[in-house]
Design a protein around this nucleic acid. Structure first.
Length: 220
DNA sequence: CTGCCGATCGCCT
DNA sequence: GGCGATCGGCAGC
């Protein structure tokens, strides 16, 4: 491999660099669509993501400042932020620039393009059900399960040469990018009017089915 | 397909 | 003590 000049943007196989992540989060989020993420023999092509801005976005875990849980988001771009939620699920984000701003992109859904049998085994072990290929990584916690993401992967720097988690450009065209409200975000801006920061590949069957406007019912 | 609901526990107030 | 950046089962259309 040579160090001369940047890789051609359409060539697959090159790991995304710190430069890729060290840009505004909305830009990084859109550019991640069509990219592939690999860990422990399973590869997923990203078809749906959401952007979170640690400074101006009340929906971000980092909005209220740095805590032990959110520390990774304040670290270098390209870091993997894995968090545990609802008492049973893990979700994964990629940290973006500028450094220290605590912005990140939530990986919401993808298509398993390699290691399908292993991905299915992981999902089956978690659910004790048979899973259709389309549903393997259709949702942030499902995607994390396919890739075997857990506490051990929190803080992994995906741009490091020996990183166990790699993110690369996809090979083919990505088609049309759709934009809309984020899923499951409540509170100020939760309706998506202020932060339409969910991006997905239009028409892709692997995009999660959860309604962007899914209203949370206040308990009566 | 849609809507409703419970599971389950770490995090923050 | 309250509430999630969720998921799967079930009922109903």
């Amino acid at each position: 491999m040579t160090e001369d000049g940047p890789a051609h943007p359409c060539v697959g196989g090159e790991r995304l660099s710190a430069t890729f992540y060290d840009r505004p989060v909305l830009q990084v989020a859109q550019d991640l669509l069509g990219c592939v993420i690999e860990h422990d023999r399973v590869t997923v092509r990203l078809v749906e993501v959401e952007a979170y801005d640690g400074e101006r976005d009340p929906g971000s875990h980092a909005y209220r400042g740095r805590t032990p849980r959110t520390a990774v988001m304040f670290g270098p771009p390209g870091g993997l932020y894995v968090y545990f939620t609802y008492g049973m699920h893990y979700c994964a984000n990629l940290v973006c620039g500028p450094p220290g701003r605590a912005s990140a992109v939530l990986l919401r859904a993808g298509a398993v393009v390699a290691g399908e049998d292993l991905a299915r085994a992981r999902r089956t072990a978690a659910t004790h059900r048979t899973i259709a290929a389309r549903d393997l990584a259709r949702g942030p916690a499902r995607l994390a399960t396919c890739l075997a993401f857990g506490r051990a992967q929190n803080g992994v720097l995906t741009t490091a040469p020996q990183s166990p988690v790699t993110v690369r450009r996809g090979a083919g065209p990505i088609g049309t990018v759709a934009v809309g409200p984020r899923v499951g975000v409540s509170g100020p801006g939760g309706d998506g009017a202020e932060f339409p920061w969910r991006y997905w590949l239009e028409g892709d069957r692997h995009v999660s089915a959860y309604r962007p406007g899914g209203f949370r019912r206040t308990r009566t």
